[in-house]
Amino acid sequence: WLFHSEFGIVNRSLTSLGLDSFDRYPWFANGTAAFAILVTLIVWQSVPFAAITLYSALTTVSPELYESARLDGAGAGRIFRSVTFPILRPIFLLVVSLEVIWTFKAFVQIWVMTRGGPGDATTILPVYV
């Protein structure tokens, strides 16, 4: 309903901002727009898990490690490369692996919204499978 061509919230919002060309814009008739909407949807669904997981892992890093790195003269970038990222690497790899697996489960969103169309613009590997 957000992108419905007649009474969708996005169309009404853009029209109220003075962009009259979006009055009855058919979002899912344009392959590029449909694909962008689906990518936005999938990212919107996956970012909170990744952010909360990485944040919780970040809170486990000991402040003493940062303090000793600063005393040794390390800058912010060097602290991230030498202290933070090595500690977060296992969690980061887990999050990336899970997100890739869950992206293959995007069939439901794509099939419900566009059935792989228009044409083959939103047909990705899970839809083919």
Rank of each mutant, 00 (worst) to 15 (best):
L2G: 12
H4P: 10
G8I: 05
N11P: 07
T15G: 13
T15D: 13
S16A: 14
G18M: 02
F28S: 03
F28K: 06
F28P: 03
A34F: 06
I37N: 02
I37T: 04
L38G: 04
V39Q: 07
L41H: 13
V47C: 09
V47K: 08
P48R: 05
I52T: 08
T53H: 06
T53N: 04
L54W: 08
S56D: 02
S56I: 05
A57L: 04
L58H: 07
T59Q: 13
E67Q: 11
E67A: 09
S68Y: 15
A74G: 11
A76T: 13
G77L: 12
G77K: 06
I79S: 14
F80C: 00
T84Y: 05
T84E: 08
T84L: 02
P86W: 07
P86Q: 06
P86S: 05
L88Y: 05
R89V: 10
R89Q: 12
R89P: 00
P90R: 04
I91M: 12
F92R: 02
F92S: 11
L93R: 12
V96R: 01
V96G: 07
S97R: 06
L98D: 05
V100L: 11
W102F: 13
T103L: 15
T103E: 15
F104N: 03
F107W: 09
Q109S: 14
I110A: 03
V112P: 10
G117F: 02
G117R: 07
P118D: 01
D120S: 15
A121W: 08
